[in-house]
Write a protein that binds this DNA or RNA. Structure first.
Lengths: 342, 342
DNA sequence: CTGCAGAATTAAAACGTTATAAATCCTTCA
DNA sequence: TGAAGGATTTATAACGTTTTAATTCTGCAG
């Protein structure tokens, strides 16, 4: 003869244990068990121990749906995934950093596609309105990013990859792109390069301004000719960037130094050199920011600065946990400094 | 004077509408509203229309937590993310394909890290035991993959990227790696190459056997010398692969053809050529499988076969939806064919 | 009219949790 | 001995949904 779930559970059979199971097993009420597991000081220490032991023994794990329904907290963190553009390996490293930090915290990570054609705010609105997450992470932050504005209005926890120019503080993690650009320019200047150029990301991104400022001011300080490659951005089709860089090499005064913000651009620049018969290290040098070990296996070797996106993901996830736990936003930011060019 | 939530909702204020709100608004009961939204034929057609209109007007969206608690279905699909190894851009493309297919289906995608050091089954067990998802996607499938075995035993919906050698059918999506290897070998042979080599993935993966078989049998058919590079796999540190390939070039009879399964290996092979003074196209040729447009900007240009991982992600997500909707597993598989080498 | 089948709707319970308010138990002190 | 009062514990409601088992309504045959 078989019994209903309470007894079946008592007998340790397949049924997933619930608070009710623990209550049966320990002889306490469901309410006490719930409080005991939450380490509520109103529950006797001995009771807490008993309950904890039973929970451990039966492998009790709270039901996410029930908890979420009751508390309104989702235990979910969402990541906006830009579907179009991609540094090589960016997503993988970044996501790995995030998920590995969140493992064991009870939070799960959901990925929401962020299609460039669509309204950039739509996924954020959906998350807010339908209460789909407790916190949000995203990249490609703009100087006056509408997502940041909306999230701050709603007082919804988030961490942006990249800073904004809003006056109110909010949590962010960023890489010191100005310092990178300065170091790259200084490195090229030290090699005797006198005509350097750079392809920038779109003007809307905050880090574009940082890059530009670092590039321009370091080049001025070094007294060398410098140019932002016109007509293309990092997000242009690589064929367009390739065309622009190749055209420049056919001009009267081709550049002898390239600052590349991403790996793809660096490869394009290398290809432009090769395709026009120029030799890297002789006719020109390239300094690139890299997020993967790919350049270890690219010939000729170029000098690079590593941006650790796994660490970035980890920092963002940790910061979001802090924010959700109530840490004040002005204390939550972190600027990663570049290593020396190598 | 303010009212409680029902009336507030009636007045269209901020509160998120629930079934109760719709019931108030339409004058029907909660039960009827629920059924009407589910298009239950027992509800009068006119009623269904009324309710649908009200839901539309108020922007009603069912609460995931409540539905999940009641039905036991999570509306979540999980992806096991391998944290260590990465084809360039693999994760990004794959994940984009998955999330973009699932948008609008009501399913959300959670990413679960799959640390190579840990028990490979642990994340799967957690998902099963805690009912964290309705379906599962994963890659790097092994011939007798324990995850597949466990999931089949539990009758839990999943789609593997790659086949297994279990007799019972299960849903999978794969790329015809045997055909790729054959085509690559034929391509090299047609170029007059007589000593070809290949770095394989680990022996445990099913696709390794496909690659080996295609490689070996095509080379035999062409009557050329062929070798699996010993001592390293695709998952070895790139420095180790580089060392092996470089060493081979210093041997008495260096290879004149390389079949590369991933982009990184192809770059390593190119670097090994460059580092030993060999010239691609003269001393040796490389054929590689690629998953990104990176080789458009690598010089020298090598011949490649494109594996569309975004399409793979889409196919897997669609197939999982089918499986969860009850389609029989034996109908759910798809083998992507390689384009000609180019 | 009455009765009854079928159509349409609904009350109520349940999923597993947390939180409010109330109840019980103990200890201590007059 | 009897309250007072703190320490513990508990009954119960609620979160929003689906579903079982009624209930009400409608039209039609007898």
């Amino acid at each position: 003869m078989t019994h209903d779930s309470p007894l079946a559970a008592l007998h340790g059979q397949g049924e997933r244990p619930t608070l009710r199971t623990l209550a049966h097993v320990t002889g306490f009420s469901v309410a006490t068990v719930s409080r005991a597991l939450a380490d509520d000081p109103r529950i006797a220490v001995k009771t807490r121990a008993t309950v904890a032991a039973a929970a451990e023994r039966l492998g009790y794990i709270p039901d996410r749906a029930a908890r979420r329904l009751r508390t309104g907290r989702t235990q979910v963190i969402s990541l906006l995934l830009n579907t179009e553009h991609e540094f090589l390996g960016f997503t993988h490293e970044f996501l790995t950093g995030i998920t590995e930090t969140l493992v064991g915290t009870g939070y799960s990570v959901t990925v929401v596609p962020d299609q460039p054609g669509d309204d950039r705010l739509a996924p954020v609105r959906t998350i807010l309105r339908n209460n789909l997450a407790d916190g949000l992470l995203f990249t490609r932050t703009e100087a006056f990013d509408p997502r940041v504005r909306l999230l701050m209005e709603a007082d919804f926890p988030f961490v942006s990859h990249g800073r904004t120019e809003f006056s109110a503080p909010h949590p962010w993690v960023d890489f010191d792109n100005e310092a990178f650009a300065r170091a790259a320019v200084a490195h090229l200047a030290a090699k005797g390069r006198r005509r350097i150029c750079m392809v920038l990301p779109g003007d809307q991104f905050t880090f574009t301004q940082h890059l530009r400022y670092g590039f321009v001011s370091a080049a001025r300080a070094a007294g060398i000719y410098h140019e932002i490659v016109p007509g293309v951005t990092l997000d242009s089709p690589t064929a367009a960037i390739a065309a622009a860089l190749t055209a420049a090499r056919h001009g009267p005064n081709p550049p002898d130094g390239y600052v590349c913000v991403g790996e793809v651009t660096a490869l394009v620049a290398l290809a432009a050199l090769a395709d026009t018969g120029a030799v890297h290290g002789i006719d020109a040098d390239i300094v690139a920011k890299r997020a993967s070990p790919i350049f270890d296996n690219i010939r000729p070797r170029i000098d690079t600065v590593f941006e650790d996106l796994r660490a970035t993901g980890r920092a963002m996830a940790e910061m979001l946990l802090g924010r959700m736990a109530g840490a004040p936003p002005e204390t939550l930011n972190r600027l990663f400094q570049p290593d020396p060019v190598a």
